[in-house]
Each structure stands twice: as C-alpha cells, then as structure tokens.
C-alpha cells in the first residue's frame, strides 16, 4: 500500500492515462478547446471580411484552407465554427444535464408517483421526432423572439438586442436542450435506483441523516461515473447535432460560421472546390471521433470491473 491515500477519481485518472486512444482524444479535444478559446487572436483573417478578388482560392500558404465563394478565409471560419460548436455543445449539455440530473435523481430516489409522472414525461419527449421538434420551435418562436428583441432594443437602445446571432443561439440551445435531456434523466434514474438500495445508503439512513444529505453525499457522487461517460459522448453528439441543424438551415444561420452551414455551402460546389467541403467536414469528423475515444476511455477508466 503506498502511503498517499488514493481516491477512486485518482485511480480512474491513472487508468485513463494508460489508454492511448483516450489520451489522443483528450489531446485533440484540449487543442480544439484552446483554439476555440483564443480564436480571435490567432485567426489570420477576419471571418466575415470578404475579398471578391480572392474567391474560391485553393489552399495555399496565405490561405491554409483556401477561400470560399465570397473570398472569406476558410480556416478563420473553421476556427470560428469551433467556437460556435463548443459554445453550443457545452451550453446544450449543461442545460440538458441540469434537467436530466434533477428529474432523474428525484424520480429514482423518491420513486412512487413522482417517478411515474417524470418517466411518462421523459418517454413523451423521447417519442417526439427530434428534427421535427427543432423545426417547429424555430418556425414558431423565431419571429416572436426577434420581435421581442426589437422591442427591447427600442426600449433600452442597448445594441446587444440588435444581435441577431443571439436569437439563433437561444433557439438552438433551447431546442437542442429540450431534446437532449431524456437520456441523462434515464441514466441518472437507473443509477440512483441501483445505488439507493446499497447498504451504505441504508447505513446513512440508520445514522439519521436527512434525505437531502443522503442524495447529495451518498447517492449522486456514486452515480457520477456513467454520467461523465455520457457527457463526453453527449458533447460530441451535440456538436454533430448542431452541425446537422445548421446544415438544414434550422440551426445557426449565416453569416455566423458553423461547421454545419459551411458543409452545407460547400456541398453545393464540391465538384469544383472540394476544399470548401473537406475542411469543415474533416474537422467535425476528427472532433467527433476524439470525443468517442475519450468517452470509451472514460468508460473503461471509471468502470474497471467491465474489463477482463
């Protein structure tokens, strides 16, 4: 026994570090997060500035990923797309996680009618076709929100209300969170159900501790493992989902760069200018794969019993 006490988290971290694929995934994700974070300082060109003399240029030293049909630098747009993707993925996952953990924990811990109503609600949400829901939300809410924001602008004269990208983001976050929380709720509920019958939880009850303490200090910390894996996979999925919605025109709208709407634009001209399609698509693919590697590695690290 080494002398420093090792918590389960530290053990898991050790196991994760031994997993080459997971470490690769972690590095890719870390680099992309960094690039997205310092994007405005490293982009060679402004992502919006058009140069009509330099349209559809192939990749070169001055434009690493070439330029698009409006003469905008593609790598700058991909970097800004990473900002969009991470912003959407993180916000959507956090919102979905909040809803899912609260509902799932309460349903699993208290059981009874609480549980049944919440699970009906979850099943109902899952049974709605995702794309349809997002399209409906966009179609029905976009105009009212834009009108409301215009009203706010006239009332306050604060230019923040004039930012149309804000409407996109609010709608994208909202609608995607609305379809993303049920898997988290189900996962947390299943975990809580299995953990609340463990002897240490009964022992905590026998000690006289309150339900709140038992849920927060005994049940939830032990339900974290599978949840972390789900979040890692969920971040990747959210990015793909955002790209898919933007591709279909119900997500982030131009001119705000998103990998989805860049792929959509690139697809129309890919026979002549394949770099416009390949650049955003390749980056999206690499991030998705990286998140999957990381998720698998986390799964193995946090549930070591599943291995031989």
């Amino acid at each position: 026994m080494e002398d420093r006490p090792t918590s389960l988290w530290r053990d898991a971290w050790k196991r994760l570090r031994r997993n080459k694929l997971a470490v690769t995934g972690l590095w890719i994700v870390a680099v992309l997060v960094l690039v997205a974070a310092i994007g405005p300082w490293i982009t060679p060109y402004d992502f919006l500035s058009q140069n009509l003399d330099a349209r559809n240029l192939p990749p070169s030293l001055s434009h690493l990923f070439g330029t698009d049909d409006l003469g905008r630098d593609v790598i700058s747009r991909v970097i800004y797309g990473a900002r969009t993707a991470f912003l959407v993925a993180v916000c959507v996952t956090v919102i979905a996680l909040l809803i899912g953990v609260v509902l799932g924990a309460i349903a699993g811990f208290y059981g009874g009618i609480f549980d049944r109503v919440m699970m009906w609600f979850t099943d109902m949400t899952m049974s709605v076709p995702q794309l349809l829901l997002v399209v409906v939300i966009n179609a029905s809410l976009k105009q009212p929100i834009a009108t409301w924001m215009e009203g706010m602008y006239l009332a306050t004269l604060n230019p923040i209300w004039r930012n149309s990208a804000l409407v996109d983001f609010v709608l994208v976050f909202g609608s995607m969170a609305l379809i993303s929380w049920p898997p988290y709720a189900r996962l947390v509920r299943a975990q809580v159900l299995s953990i609340r019958s463990r002897p240490y939880v009964t022992a905590a009850r026998a000690l006289g501790l309150t339900n709140r303490i038992i849920l927060l200090r005994y049940v939830l910390p032990n339900a974290m493992g599978p949840l972390i894996v789900a979040v890692s996979a969920g971040l990747g999925t959210a990015m793909v989902l955002e790209s898919a919605f933007s591709f279909l025109g119900v997500g982030v709208n131009p001119p705000t760069p998103s990998w989805g709407n860049m792929i959509s634009d690139g697809l129309r001209v890919w026979t002549n200018y394949p770099h416009l399609l390949i650049a955003p698509a390749a980056v999206l693919a690499v991030v998705t794969v990286a998140f999957n590697f990381l998720g698998d590695g986390l799964n193995d690290a946090l549930n070591p019993k599943g291995q031989k």
Binding site: S7, L8, P199, Y200, T202, A203, A204, Y218, P221, N222
Partner: peptide, 12 residues
C-alpha cells in the same frame, strides 16, 4: 451490515 464491501460509501 453483512457485506463489508458495500457497507461504506466508496467516495468518502
């Protein structure tokens, strides 16, 4: 309790 392996909260 009986089972020494599940009687303590593994995160504490």
């Amino acid at each position: 309790f009986q089972d020494p392996y599940s009687t303590l909260n593994p995160r504490m």
